[in-house]
Design a protein around this nucleic acid. Structure first.
Length: 389
DNA sequence: CTCATGTTTCCTGGTT
DNA sequence: CAACCAGGAAACATGA
């Protein structure tokens, strides 16, 4: 995604299908992103505006107020001096309908979700040159993770067969979501679901300010996003025609998608730009393997191992401590195809790497946490606070 | 096959 | 001294 470093706004799309199973309303949906505070706020606001054109019973809020701060989705707030000068304006709310609604209603934080619908999130991505508050430029996955916690309301049946799934398949929602979390909903009052929205790449958007009307009545059928029936199973290909029309032709020089900066000198992007399709994983694309942080998370949720060999120091902060280092290493080794040679030394090296990547974080100083064997989940890990039960 | 990610392995050096 | 921490370097495994 990133790496484009050109002017103009790219368009990313987060996409999640909440088909079937969504017969239970109202529902509360909480979102959080893994991006830094200011930007996360803006993001969440935008997402909320984009996601729920059919007016969901939605409460978007920060799940971790420490990191992300509370959200105020009111247009007034979004349009306030605090955010708009940093690159946002009302055109960034791509759903004009919702935008309009927000102007009328004063407290748009809660909205009614009338029926199942697809989550289709469009979000602008700004070029590196645009400063957005505390936007941390070192976080290269600024639109990376978006978690969505769905709380099914009462008076509903069981959440039923279908649970959200992602057709986007960029990985990262692997086992935990599909297996553990969703299967165990015996009572719906506490049925929170953590899903990970995934990112799908789109051709860059040329000029967001112009002819801005993605969701008019003409194309809403295609978008599968309005009050009508959810119809077909969404697929990344249902990207609004608005975007398809915008072939990355002329104008703009370097077009995003050619990631990883240095690129071979092949900037001769004819129309073959999209057909080129190089093999290999795209930059920023996460792997779908069982990650160390997932392993740790699962250990902590497993009474067989927690607190015997690993335990929480502060579940609220995501801080945990390894109790029996050799045991943890052994378990990790067995998880990874029976690598019997795994040691805590090596595991901790991995852990330090993962920390550098944001899956773990430094433990806060001066809070009395042990100096050894103590770690903390980072912004790129998720789900640790909400075990699948 | 290519490629980025996420380790794994080994290592040097430091701290508790 | 054992056990742990920090990180560089490079090899390796994986899956898109």
């Amino acid at each position: 995604m990133r790496g484009s470093s050109n002017d103009g706004c790219e368009e990313g799309i987060l996409f999640w299908s909440l088909f079937q199973g969504w017969s239970n309303f109202p529902a509360i949906i909480k979102l959080r992103t893994s991006v830094k505070p200011k930007k996360a706020d803006v993001f969440n606001g935008i997402m909320a505006a984009h996601i729920f054109p059919s007016l969901a019973d939605v409460l978007t809020e920060s799940l971790d107020s420490d990191e992300f701060g509370p959200l105020d989705l009111s247009l007034a707030n979004m349009a306030g001096t605090s955010t708009f000068p940093k690159g946002l304006d009302e055109h960034d709310f791509m759903n004009q309908h919702v935008l309009y609604e927000k102007e009328i209603k004063e407290e748009p934080k809660m909205q009614e979700l009338s029926q199942p619908d697809d989550l289709l999130i469009h979000l602008p991505m700004w070029p590196d040159t645009v400063q957005l508050g505390n936007f941390d430029e070192n976080v290269n996955n600024e639109v990376g993770l978006v978690e969505c916690e769905v709380e099914i309301g009462q008076g509903s049946g069981t959440p039923s067969s279908g649970y959200p799934r992602s057709p986007g398949s960029t990985g990262d929602n692997s086992d935990y979501n599909s297996d553990s979390s969703f299967e165990h909903h015996n009572n719906y009052t506490d049925s929170k679901r953590m899903i990970t929205l995934e990112r799908v790449q789109l051709p860059p958007r040329m000029d967001i300010k112009q002819e801005f009307m993605p969701y008019n009545s003409d194309n809403k059928d295609n978008l599968n996003i309005h009050m009508e029936s959810p119809s077909n199973i969404p697929h990344p290909s249902i990207i609004p025609p608005f975007y398809h029309d915008q072939t990355p032709d002329d104008d703009d020089e370097d077009q995003s998608m050619t990631d990883s900066g240095s690129e071979s000198g092949s900037d001769s992007k004819e129309s073959s730009e999209e057909t080129r399709k190089r093999p290999g994983r795209k930059k920023g694309q996460t792997s779908s393997v069982y990650h160390l942080w997932e392993f740790i998370r699962d250990l902590l949720h497993d009474p067989q191992y927690c607190p015997r060999i690993i335990k929480w120091e502060s579940k609220e902060e995501g801080i945990f401590r390894v109790v029996k280092s050799s045991e943890v290493a052994k378990q990790w080794g067995s998880k990874k195809k029976n690598r019997s040679k795994m040691t805590y030394e090596k595991l901790s090296r991995s852990l330090r790497y993962s920390r550098k990547e944001g899956y773990f974080a430094d433990i806060p100083k001066d809070k009395g946490y042990p100096k050894k064997l103590c770690f903390k989940f980072g912004p790129k890990s998720h789900g640790w606070a909400h075990p699948g039960k």
